[in-house]
């Protein structure tokens, strides 16, 4: 994950050193939380995790507890009720860890901007390591974004 951070910093920081080849010795564990939203991104993630895309072969695996995860993948606008849930999941994760926002809602609220029940997107609220745009982004777009995390 230190390598992951380095690559992310390189990708977002403007410097572009040679990519470090990484051999995936075990799959990168990803924990997904939907924090509101229409479930469209979640359905595309379900498609990605299904038979139509060979996710296991890419070196990425979804896990069902944040305690085993290195990546927290968020979809949907952050509702006020889900904010403490998201926070708890983040703090349950071992370090180093990365925060990935998938879809317009998770990034900046998309069609569900701040109101009495919704806080909006993660942008400006938490340091996002990777943002995958789209409403919803296709499984292929999500996959190519996540594969970038592996440095492959």
């Amino acid at each position: 994950m230190a390598i992951l951070r380095a690559i992310l910093t390189a990708a977002t920081g403007g410097h572009a050193p040679a990519r470090v080849p990484v051999a995936a010795v075990r799959p990168l564990p990803v924990f997904h939380i939907e924090t509101g939203g229409c479930e469209g991104c979640a359905m595309e993630l379900a498609a990605l995790d299904g038979a139509a895309y060979g996710l296991a072969a890419t070196g990425i695996a979804f896990v069902t507890t944040p305690r085993l995860a290195e990546v927290l993948l968020v979809t949907g606008p952050l509702t006020r009720v889900m904010a403490p849930v998201l926070e708890a999941a983040w703090h349950a994760m071992p370090e180093p860890r990365a925060l990935v926002a998938v879809g317009a809602c998770a990034i900046d609220g998309g069609p569900f901007s701040e109101n009495y029940a919704v806080l909006g997107g993660l942008e400006g609220r938490a340091p996002i390591d990777l943002a995958i745009a789209g409403c919803p982004p296709s499984p292929a777009a999500i996959l190519s974004g996540l594969v970038g995390l592996l440095g492959g």
Partner: peptide, 27 residues
């Protein structure tokens, strides 16, 4: 947990924008 206030958002919207939002009520 997923309540986004769809009713409040629809009020005041033009018809075309309202239809776009309704398309994101439930995927």
């Amino acid at each position: 947990y997923a309540h986004r206030g769809l009713v409040a958002r629809l009020c005041g919207m033009e018809p075309a924008a309202a239809a776009r939002l309704a398309g994101r009520a439930a995927a």
